[in-house]
Design a protein around this nucleic acid. Structure first.
Lengths: 248, 248
DNA sequence: CGGTCATTTGAAGGACCTCAAGCTTAGTGG
DNA sequence: CCACTAAGCTTGAGGTCCTTCAAATGACCG
C-alpha cells in the first residue's frame, strides 16, 4: 500500500490498457499519458487499494494482478461485486461522482498504474479518445455487474457457481492468467461464497457436487474446466461482449 | 412503440436532463442539442423501449415516466436490474459497446427524447461537458446496480424489500413522483418480486408483514412510508450519492 | 355479469443456513 | 525434524427461509 516509485517507462501500456492492446496510442495520447501518470504502485495480496470512505486523489489501472470490488452491510455481510483484471480501471466512480461506495482489495500481488483523479476533466477536454475509452470501460463494467445481478437474483447456487467459473475463466484468459481450460484461482472458498451470495459451507458443498459431476477440478490454486458445454448448460450461459473496443 | 413526432421545442430539457436541472446549458450545447436530437417518442405502459437483441440506432433520455431495465435467463426467469426515471439515459451500452445485454420496458406512459447513437462519438469530440455528463450518469447507474447486487446477495427478503422501498422513494422524489413520504407505485407485486429476486408469493407475504408492522402502506397505486427510521433500520440503509453532478 | 389479471392464503417440500466439530495444510519456532 | 498454530476446508445434523403447487378471493373492464 505504499512504494510509490515513479517510473516514466512503458507508460503507454497503462492509461487504458485495453486500448493499447487493440490500437496503439497516437502521439498526442502518449504525450498526455506521460504528463498524466503519477507512478506505479505494487501492493501485496489482501491489501486495500481503494477504501469506501476514503477520498484518495488517485485513479488506478491494473497492470498486473487480480483484485476484487466489494461492498458490505454494517453488520459485516459482504458481497463481492466483481473481480478486476489487468486493464481495468479502479476509482472511476470516485473521480466522476467524487464518492466511492465500494472497496477494492488485491487478491494477488498487484501492480497498479497511478493517475491523478483531478485530471480526469482535462482528459475529457483534451483527449476525447481516452475519455471515450474510459466510458467504454465504465459501460462494460456495468454490463458485467448486470450479469452478476441476474445470476445472484435468479440462479440457484449450483448454476451461479457454473456461471461464475465460466466468467472468471473468460476474464482470466484475456488477462493471460489462463490456458487450456485452466485458470489461476488465487482466492479462497470464502471469496467465492461472497461473490455468489451464499454461505461458505454451502459453497463448499456446491463445489464438491460440481467436482463429483466432473464439470471442474480445483487443485493447487488452479481450476480446470473439464466439461465446458456441461457447465454452460447448467449456467444457461450466454457469452458476454468480446471485450473489443469498437472503432469509432 | 411508434409515434415518432419530432418536435424541436424544449430540447434543452433532455439530452442530459440532470445537467439542465443543476446548470443551464451553454450556447454551444444548446446549439448541439438541437442538431443532435431526432425527436420525441411516447410509449404506452408495458411497451419495450430497447430490446436486448435489437440494434436500434437510437439512444434515449427519459423526459417523463418510469421504466425498468431487466434481463432474463433462457427459461424465462427474469431479474429487474434497476428502475429508470426522468433524466436517465437509456441505451448507452448499445452506443458505446454496440451491444445491449438487457431490455428496457416502460412501466407508465413514458416520453422519451430520441438521439442518434452514432453521434455519440461526436459528443466526445466536440462537447466534452456533455460527454462528461454521460459518463457521470453511467458511473451513477453502476453505483446503483452495485447497491442492488449487495442487497440481493446479502439481505433477506424483508430487508431487501425495505431497501428497495427507500430506494424507490428517493428516486421518485427527485423525479417529482413523490411527496410527503408517499410515492407512485405503477408496478405490480410481480415487478417487485423480479427486482427483489424472490417469488411473487413470498413477495406478497413479505409485503403483508411489512404492512402489519406499520412500516409502510400500499393503497391505490401509492406507497406510503409510515416509519422511515424503522425501514432504514431493517434495511441497514446507507444513503446514496445526492445525485448532484459535481462542478468541474 | 362473465372473464381476465393481480392478489391472497394454505400446505408441503426443498434449498440453503446455522452451529459445531473434525480435518488438512502450510507456516513457525524450538 | 517435530510440535504447535492458524487458516482454510470438510462434514453432519437440525432448522428456517423461501419456493412450489394449488386454489380462492378480489378488482377491473367491456
Amino acid at each position: 500500500m505504499s512504494d510509490d516509485r515513479a517510473s516514466q517507462t512503458e507508460c503507454h501500456r497503462c492509461p487504458l490498457r485495453k486500448q493499447s492492446i487493440f490500437r496503439p496510442l497516437d502521439e498526442n495520447e502518449l504525450n498526455f499519458v506521460s504528463r498524466f501518470k503519477t507512478g506505479e504502485l505494487t501492493v501485496d495480496p489482501g491489501s486495500t487499494i481503494l477504501l469506501e470512505e476514503n477520498k484518495t486523489p488517485h485513479l488506478y489501472t491494473i497492470l498486473d494482478g487480480w483484485a476484487f470490488r466489494h461492498k458490505s452491510l454494517v453488520d459485516g455481510r459482504r458481497q463481492i461485486l466483481n473481480f478486476a483484471f489487468p486493464g481495468d480501471l479502479l476509482g472511476l466512480q470516485l473521480a466522476i461522482l467524487s464518492e466511492m461506495q465500494h472497496t477494492v482489495t488485491a487478491l494477488t500481488r498487484t501492480t497498479l498504474c497511478v493517475f491523478q483523479r483531478d485530471k480526469v476533466w482535462s482528459i475529457f477536454k483534451e483527449y476525447p479518445t481516452l475519455a471515450y475509452s474510459m466510458t467504454w470501460m465504465a459501460a462494460r463494467e456495468e454490463q458485467m455487474v448486470d450479469g452478476h445481478l441476474l445470476s445472484i437474483g435468479r440462479r440457484n447456487a449450483f448454476e451461479r457457481l457454473a456461471y461464475l467459473i465460466i466468467h472468471l475463466y473468460e476474464r482470466a484468459k484475456v488477462a493471460g492468467y489462463a490456458g487450456n481450460q485452466t485458470f489461476d484461482a488465487p482466492f479462497t472458498q470464502e471469496h467465492l461464497s461472497d461473490a455468489l451470495g451464499i454461505t461458505p459451507v454451502h459453497t463448499n458443498r456446491t463445489l464438491k457436487k460440481m467436482q463429483m459431476r466432473k464439470l471442474i477440478s480445483w487443485r493447487s490454486e488452479r481450476i480446470q474446466i473439464l466439461d465446458r458445454s456441461g457447465l454452460e448448460a447448467v449456467a444457461a450461459y450466454e457469452p458476454e461482449g468480446d471485450g473489443q473496443r469498437p472503432l469509432i
